[in-house]
């Protein structure tokens, strides 16, 4: 069969072009810029990591169980307690805290970046039209593909890992903030404007509170994506549970790899339940433990480990 690639003069050196662009232009010119972007991330991460590792295990467990009880009810609180004790008993407590610090840092920056972008997208159709394909690309590029340019621009280590995580996890919160604000009933926004509200006032008083449920759903998705990416980020030197899984894989040590995986799943379930409950009505619902366990393991929740949850 004849194909265009049989003719040498037609061949497109696409890979060479990208190499040229990244190696010879982007990296030398912008490396200091990208390096400086690491600074805020590493500040937040270091603070959080120090705090979490310094907090005694029992104190932290009690605190998280309390939060779970206040937000998601008694069942989730008991689950949290058992899961954290289990993680401690299998000897993965420090790794779990490191992972948690990384995830929380990534989600923090996703919120700081994502919500304003989502608001802007809701306000302007043009901005939405520009943003949408970018978000599509960010969500369809396989997570490993991010890692190469990230390493070239940011180097290796925990902070570049978190930056990769932020890029990977930010789309849902942008999309759902946009969606939530666009779905606020038109006459409510109109009423706010009719009473003389400035754009900022109608955002703060009406649109944002009414979009909060949808935004919280976006936060939940972002959290789950961040958790899955933090593991992959271990490939470029981020520590935590991802590293445990990664080294386990490298040494064909099934036991350690599984332990790390179980730790991630447990952490994912806890964070998912709490963040979902935050998005629901503020009132505290108390559900029986049986019901909670059943809902935790119902087929619908299989995705809770954070795989392939994508916002519409």
């Amino acid at each position: 069969m004849i194909s265009p690639s049989d003719f040498d003069f037609l061949a497109i050196p696409f890979a060479d072009w990208i190499n040229l662009f990244v190696r010879d232009w982007l990296v030398p010119n912008f490396r200091p810029f990208f390096r400086s972007m690491q600074w805020p991330v590493s500040q937040v991460l270091n603070g959080l990591s120090t705090f979490l590792n310094a907090t005694p295990m029992l104190v932290f467990t009690a605190a998280l169980a309390l939060i779970a009880w206040r937000t998601a009810g008694r069942g989730v609180a008991i689950f949290t307690l058992i899961a954290l004790v289990f993680i401690d008993l299998i000897g993965l407590w420090p790794e779990t805290m490191t992972t948690l610090a990384m995830v929380v840092t990534a989600v923090f920056f996703c919120v700081v970046i994502g919500i304003p972008l989502g608001v802007l997208a809701a306000r302007s159709d043009i901005f939405q039209a520009v943003l949408r394909p970018i978000l599509d690309i960010m969500q369809t590029i396989p997570s490993f593909v991010y890692l190469v340019p990230i390493v070239m621009l940011f180097g290796v280590g925990v902070v570049p890992g978190i930056i990769a995580t932020i890029i990977f996890a930010v789309p849902p919160i942008i999309r759902l903030t946009n969606l939530g604000i666009r779905n606020v009933r038109h006459d409510l926004t109109e009423a706010a404007v009719a009473f003389g509200a400035t754009p900022w006032q109608s955002l703060v008083e009406v649109q944002f509170p009414l979009a909060l449920r949808t935004i919280m759903a976006g936060l939940n998705q972002t959290l789950m994506l961040a958790l899955s990416m933090v593991v992959i980020a271990a490939l470029i030197g981020a520590g935590g549970l991802g590293l445990t899984v990664f080294t386990g894989l490298g040494r064909l040590d099934v036991g350690n790899a599984t332990a790390g995986g179980v730790g991630i799943v447990l952490l994912a379930i806890i964070l998912d339940r709490i963040s979902q409950a935050l998005g629901e009505k503020r009132s505290v619902r108390t559900v029986s433990l049986m019901e909670t366990m059943r809902s935790l393991f119902s087929p619908r929740r299989d995705a809770a480990a954070g795989e392939s949850q994508r916002a519409g």
Binding site: R185, D187, L188, E190, A191, E205, L210
Partner: peptide
């Protein structure tokens, strides 16, 4: 407003 437009 016609449909009241009260803030829920």
């Amino acid at each position: 407003f016609q449909h009241f437009a009260l803030f829920p």
